[in-house]
Design a protein around this nucleic acid. Structure first.
Lengths: 116, 116
DNA sequence: GCTTGATAGTTCTTATTTGGAACTTAGGTC
DNA sequence: GACCTAAGTTCCAAATAAGAACTATCAAGC
């Protein structure tokens, strides 16, 4: 690996960690997955819960569906409304998120600032 | 969470996953950690192994040291040369990386393209 | 004591990605 | 027919990353 590269180029890396990161190695993507595990499934919910822009959510959901981690399902025909649910492949991300959760709980306690 | 935000703003989020991601929710940061677990410790090694730009590596190492995940240690006094090693806090990331590795091995087999 | 060679960065300019807000589409409610 | 909801898209400005060259500090060779 002589020259610099973009993260999407990692998808064919020899290392399974790198390949995984080429898909989900991104703050918002992982937050969306967290939300899915918490039971959220709709576009507006992801926007509200993560605080990311609609543009980002749109892009990341597309990526996740393409990767077969989420599935886009119509929950209403008229008007057409869609929701995103974890596939089995997506479900298997649980251990990673649990690891992050545990690490965060142990090492990053909330500093309760007086915020408005 | 009404307005959009930056990922570094996640550091005081109610969710431990979000707080963790505010630190390491970034492709290169996690790749650097992977490298550390593989035994790498020097600037040039990270540059070569990850394929990220020197700028990025520099920035991410700083962040990781600040967060107490890596420690910067001099391995030579003259000339001053430093290496980066996992702290205990950093070591405890192992389960997350293992999860990523396992997920990648299972769901993202290498497509052996004939690349130059 | 000048040149070459590491290592660990920094600087610079350009390109790509995000942020923020408004707009769209398609139907529903009052 | 004015307003509402959900799920996006579009636009421009701002922030971040890419790519390459440059710097600092010493060691080794000649």
């Amino acid at each position: 690996m002589l020259a610099s590269m973009k993260w999407t180029d990692l998808d064919d890396n020899w290392c399974p960690v790198a390949r995984t990161l080429s898909l989900v190695g991104d703050r918002w993507t992982l937050l969306i997955l967290r939300d899915c595990f918490l039971g959220l499934s709709r576009f507006e919910q992801f926007v509200e819960s993560t605080g990311a822009t609609r543009h980002l959510i749109s892009d990341r959901l597309k990526r996740l569906v393409e990767a077969g981690i989420l599935a886009k399902q119509a929950y209403s025909e008229r008007p057409k409304r869609y929701e995103y649910v974890l596939t089995e492949k997506g479900q298997e991300f649980a251990p990673a998120l649990v690891s992050f959760r545990d690490w965060g709980k142990k090492h990053l306690p909330v500093r309760r600032q007086t915020k408005t």
